[in-house]
Design a protein around this nucleic acid. Structure first.
Lengths: 187, 187
DNA sequence: AGCACCTATTCAAAAAGTTGCATAAGGGGA
DNA sequence: TCCCCTTATGCAACTTTTTGAATAGGTGCT
């Protein structure tokens, strides 16, 4: 149910089209929520209908026209009220962990491969996050940025994404070591 | 789509009823997948229908009867084939992060409270994971357990849960510090 | 005796999310 | 020129997940 609020929150960073949002919410980049383009277009429609967003059409010469959305005062109010509601704890749901859970039965090889692939992805994501963070800070060191910047929310959520990937790598390396050892020396 | 496989994987640890599974898959405890009782009962039906599980009814004296499920050879085969399929990367979806993303607009107080509550939950979960891990090891030190135990999958997924909560706490503390400082000294 | 809670399962309905496709215009490379 | 990619949006069908019950016997507490 937080897709509404996630869209509003994302639009606080500035006017955007559905397409722009789709990129921010792409599962591969999203640092605080993920969603598909279809979900976003539907949600934008709804939010506009409820008066939480206002839209304006921008005619473009060499591109299809696009609709840019902005959060209205009513939208901001929804966010304020949302921030007071209890957050539900997040649940783990990861294909890879299911495979690992069953690994003793299914054989270690496939899981080792899957883990290696996942870690490669994590590394790529981590680098991307680092570049993004650097661009956000715009020359300032982190300490100063966090004290002086106008908005820190987006930076802090980005750091959560970063820390998640980093921890994935740390755990992944340890797990890989265990699995490879057991493959080499079965009990 | 991995609920099927998650149920099969969970049942590798031994025969269980829907009710038993519901406890293992509870969002507050689940270390490799989470699901509600309703999802599980439906999935158990389906899996039995497909011959991936077999069920037997156990009459009980002072409790309602229950149905205990076991993974069949066909079920194990499904798991084996699943372990070779590509895993989709996980996406972040967390209420709390949405609030944090919007925090500069909505005010810091509510988010600080939410973060503190979340961290309290994390601490509780971490302790529970630690007790679970200790019980799994059954006296052995981790190093030896991981080398000699018959099955390590469940232990390794538990460790992922643990590392996730720990990282949540680490990041949470740092984030809290930033937010509290900004609350005390607004730019 | 009454109440709250635990075991054990199931139904119905709504909300949320995914998948596949369709449109439409322009850009870039073989 | 043909094909594929990017921008930009949308529909329809489908699956998955969540929510909110209802049932039914038993335990423990006051």
């Amino acid at each position: 149910m937080a897709l509404r609020e996630a869209v509003l929150a994302a639009l606080l960073e500035g006017e955007a089209s559905g397409y722009d949002l789709a990129k921010r919410f792409d599962a591969g980049v999203a640092n605080f929520w993920s969603a598909t383009p279809q979900q976003l277009y539907r949600e934008l429609e709804r939010l506009e209908g409820e008066g939480l967003l206002s839209a304006r059409v921008v005619r473009q010469e060499r591109r299809p026209d696009k609709r840019l959305f902005t959060v209205t005062e009513a939208g901001r109010e929804v966010l304020r009220s949302f921030s007071h509601q209890p957050s539900r704890p997040t649940a783990i749901r990861d294909d890879l962990l299911v495979k690992l859970q069953a690994a003793d039965e299914t054989g270690l090889d496939a899981v080792i491969t899957a883990l290696e692939q996942r870690m490669e992805l994590c590394r790529a994501k981590l680098e991307r996050y680092d570049r993004l963070a650097e661009r956000m800070r715009g020359g300032l060191d982190e300490e100063r940025y966090l004290r002086e910047a106008e908005r820190v929310g987006p930076y802090l959520t980005l750091q959560r994404g970063r820390s998640h990937e980093q921890e994935n790598l740390r755990w992944g390396a340890a797990t890989l070591a265990v699995l490879e050892r057991r493959r080499a020396e079965p009990r």
